[in-house]
Design a protein around this nucleic acid. Sequence first.
DNA 1: ACCTGAACACCGTTCAAGT
DNA 2: ACCTGAACACCGTTCAAGT
Lengths: 218, 218
Amino acid sequence: MAAKTGNRRARLDRSMIVDAILQLARDEPRARITFKRLGQALGVDATAMYRHFRNKDELTRAALDRLSAMAVADAETVTGDWRERLEAHLLRIAELSLEHPSIAAEGAILDPVGPGDVAGDEFVLARLSDAGLAGAPLVRAYAAVSGFALAQSAAMAQEVVAGRGAAARDGSIPWISTFGSVDLTDYPLVNEYREALLSIDGMTVYRAGIAAILDSVA
Amino acid sequence: MAAKTGNRRARLDRSMIVDAILQLARDEPRARITFKRLGQALGVDATAMYRHFRNKDELTRAALDRLSAMAVADAETVTGDWRERLEAHLLRIAELSLEHPSIAAEGAILDPVGPGDVAGDEFVLARLSDAGLAGAPLVRAYAAVSGFALAQSAAMAQEVVAGRGAAARDGSIPWISTFGSVDLTDYPLVNEYREALLSIDGMTVYRAGIAAILDSVA
DNA sequence: ACCTGAACACCGTTCAAGT
DNA sequence: ACCTGAACACCGTTCAAGT
């Protein structure tokens, strides 16, 4: 599918490796990303990455940082009031996570480690500041909003990677795809709402959660 | 530390194995859980587990199901109005996740597969039903609340496993433990609020997020 | 029926050797 | 300075053999 496989001969650098791992994550959403596979895509030995990253975790974090930078860059093109701009940013985080699930699935960890992560924090703080918040309420709102967005995006990405049910079949991401083999007669409400529960869409919940948190901010 | 290590000689069953993996998760929060390690704790060969679980994923899911059942059982002892009972349940999910981080870190996936998972769903639906919700609003509120609780609990557990900063040093779980080596002068708000951001506690955010979502329910 | 232990395929990581 | 390839330690999983 990809035009560029095994044809890289230029000298490697961190940015090229991050490019390659994100493309791999995009092209093979269900596959586990391995140094061997990454080396093949770059036309390079599997161990060549160690010249540029201390270990796989550092590479993964760099890729997450790039995703964060992309989300900010995209959000900065959006105009509107503080809430529209913030919602656009948070939505972009979820979209990028679902487009690179095997990377984003690792991203529930909140520590910012690179400029992209910090730029994301700055963007959220700036929008909430536009909304008139400052001091402790600003910090609280930041934590609630970005915590929700990152944790939820990572959870949706994990659902895609696990690939249960019909995850991402049509762009919708199922919240619940099965009740296993549990006899639902013992659980009357689950049983009554079974169909409705199975048709919950992850992105819908994501938007609703953000709306609820931002409502309580305003 | 543990009194019972390598002294199990009774026949294995699924429940015993789940007991052992949860105890391991409790005793060694930072260690990766391996079949070999689990076999040692049970006094059994590493491959003996395959007689009882199809693979490691199925075992992990069974352990998560047990945690879910424990959270419901504990919540059922709490009295009060719908909100107090629901908040007690959601808080218990987070606490149990932090007590068994290496298991809970896998749990951002929302699919319920066992009776414990379904009992958790039933409990949340029942409390929201007590609050007067029904139909589509009930399902939406369920999704927002349980999605937040599960994703956020898993993210906090991952933070403990990754063990960055002083995670779980004193029971508090840091939201952000570092800004890496990023020069914060380019990010004025992050820079201004640096100390406040670093002192955010995960459980505080968790409570605040749930409060915000439940406010919008009521 | 249940458990053991050898074996396999894989993976991250290290390191001496190449260019 | 950067990359290769052999080697190591590990891990999940399978399967024939034991009891």
